[in-house]
Amino acid sequence: MIGYLNVILRLAIWFLLTADLSGANIVIGVAVALLLPRSYTAPGAFRDWLRALAETLVAIPQAYQEAVEIILRPHRREAITMERVKPQRTPGLIFLDIFLITFTPKTIVLKYHEDGWYEVHRIQPGRSPKP
């Protein structure tokens, strides 16, 4: 089941990159998704994929809410924080985590550290400190 989710994720990325749903592009996308090498790490639990999907559905209205907040009350303070990667994450789930963090307007992942940390840039409400 997880193999299907990886293929679907690869196809979704392909369609987002190409922005073309023609028959030829679909065939090429399926071929690319199937021919890309697979990772040999332990497959993610189906429960983790469902949780990531639920987080994605929550992130969409959150992104709109944050965009409106930024428009109405400009955010001038910035902070760079380190967030721990959830344990036993597959590369596909790590990609989804980074996507979810970056999807909302107030945060962006600056760097993924191989030792299990994300470096996240956040903007926060309030005025910036005076120099």
Rank of each mutant, 00 (worst) to 15 (best):
residue 44 G to E: 04
residue 22 S to W: 01
residue 113 H to V: 08
residue 61 P to E: 13
residue 64 Y to P: 00
residue 26 I to A: 15
residue 79 A to H: 03
residue 125 P to W: 00
residue 19 A to D: 11
residue 127 R to Y: 09
residue 20 D to V: 09
residue 13 I to T: 11
residue 68 V to P: 00
residue 3 G to Y: 07
residue 91 P to E: 05
residue 57 L to N: 03
residue 48 D to C: 05
residue 99 F to Q: 05
residue 8 I to C: 08
residue 64 Y to F: 14
residue 57 L to M: 10
residue 59 A to I: 01
residue 18 T to H: 09
residue 20 D to F: 08
residue 34 L to R: 07
residue 124 Q to D: 00
residue 50 L to E: 04
residue 43 P to E: 13
residue 109 V to A: 15
residue 54 A to C: 07
residue 117 W to A: 03
residue 90 T to L: 00
residue 103 F to M: 07
residue 61 P to G: 15
residue 11 L to D: 12
residue 67 A to C: 07
residue 92 G to Q: 06
residue 23 G to D: 06
residue 54 A to T: 10
residue 39 S to T: 13
residue 35 L to D: 06
residue 34 L to Q: 10
residue 7 V to S: 10
residue 113 H to D: 14
residue 100 L to A: 07
residue 2 I to R: 05
residue 131 P to E: 12
residue 96 L to V: 14
residue 128 S to T: 08
residue 27 V to M: 12
residue 106 K to L: 01
residue 47 R to V: 14
residue 41 T to F: 01
residue 35 L to F: 12
residue 88 Q to Y: 09
residue 31 A to W: 13
residue 81 T to L: 08
residue 87 P to C: 06
residue 60 I to H: 06
residue 121 H to L: 06
residue 42 A to S: 14
residue 25 N to M: 13
residue 19 A to R: 07
residue 12 A to Q: 03
residue 37 P to E: 08
residue 113 H to W: 05
residue 127 R to A: 15
residue 5 L to H: 06
residue 33 A to M: 06
residue 53 L to G: 15
residue 63 A to G: 11
residue 95 F to H: 04
residue 128 S to L: 07
residue 24 A to V: 09
residue 35 L to M: 13
residue 82 M to D: 11
residue 24 A to M: 06
residue 117 W to P: 00
residue 63 A to S: 15
residue 97 D to I: 04
residue 118 Y to V: 01
residue 4 Y to V: 12
residue 26 I to L: 15
residue 4 Y to K: 05
residue 89 R to Y: 09
residue 1 M to R: 03
residue 44 G to Q: 05
residue 76 R to D: 01
residue 108 I to V: 15
residue 64 Y to A: 15
residue 3 G to P: 02
residue 111 K to S: 12
residue 55 E to F: 11
residue 69 E to F: 10
residue 117 W to S: 10
residue 35 L to Y: 10
residue 105 P to F: 02
residue 52 A to T: 07
residue 109 V to I: 04
residue 67 A to E: 05
residue 75 H to T: 02
residue 88 Q to M: 06
residue 46 F to H: 05
residue 111 K to P: 00
residue 41 T to E: 11
residue 107 T to Q: 07
residue 7 V to E: 11
residue 107 T to R: 04
residue 84 R to Y: 04
residue 76 R to Y: 08
residue 118 Y to S: 01
residue 122 R to L: 09
residue 90 T to F: 02
residue 1 M to K: 02
residue 30 V to P: 01
residue 67 A to W: 04
residue 95 F to K: 00
residue 36 L to Q: 13
residue 58 V to Y: 07
residue 87 P to E: 11
residue 3 G to H: 07
residue 46 F to W: 12
residue 66 E to C: 02
residue 57 L to E: 03
residue 100 L to P: 03
